[in-house]
Structure formats: structure tokens, C-alpha cells
Amino acid sequence: MAAPVSAVNPSRLAALTRLRCAVFQTSYNPTGVRTGAKYLRARLRGPSMAEYYPPVLTVAKFNRMSHGEFKIDDRHEAQRLADIEEAKRRGKGAPKKAKSAADSRRAGRRR
């Protein structure tokens, strides 16, 4: 059953909307102008995004957390450092960092 809409004055309808906004604490915005409120209203997505991967406890992390009270031998890290020392001893270590752009290996490269 259709109600007779045209019987009500539009200005009265607008006044009703304004009053409704005042009662329900919403902002009166009849022209639908964009106020950017939706960016403030939306929940922050960062916290849930940051905990997507489950936390992993590694030996290094444990040693850092225990502040030297306990210490677990990190065999993989020790092996890595030993390998680096061995490579350096044989002259196969990583090259020195370039101090300037001119020292860089990329300097002589053709582009």
C-alpha cells in the first residue's frame, strides 16, 4: 500500500532529518558531501596485518631475550662465522665496502 508522500512539505522532511541526526548523534549532511569521515571511522588494519606470520623463536632471539642469564650455543651461527674466517684466510672473503661511488665496482660498468 503506497502512502501519500506528496502531502508532506520537503522542508518539514529536512527538519525531521536534522532532528533525527541530533537525536542519534550523526552528522547532518543532506547533500552527501565527502567529509573523509570513513577514513577515521574504519578500524586500523595494521595490528592484525602485522601478526599474520606466527612468531618464531630462534636461538639468537632466545639469547637476546635472556640478557645473558642463559646462553644456548648457536651452532649454525658459529659455523657461519668459522666459514667466513676460513674464506678470508684463503683470500676468498667478501670485498671491502666502497668508500665512494668511484671505488664501486659499478662505476666502470657500461649502461
Binding site: 565527502r34 567529509t35 573523509g36 569521515a37 577514513y39
Partner: peptide, 12 residues
Amino acid sequence: RRAYLYVARNQT
């Protein structure tokens, strides 16, 4: 970022 977005998208 949200604060800047709010300002940038606010037509008033």
C-alpha cells in the same frame, strides 16, 4: 596515513 587521507579526501 589515515590522518592525511582524512584531510585529502575531505571536500569541506
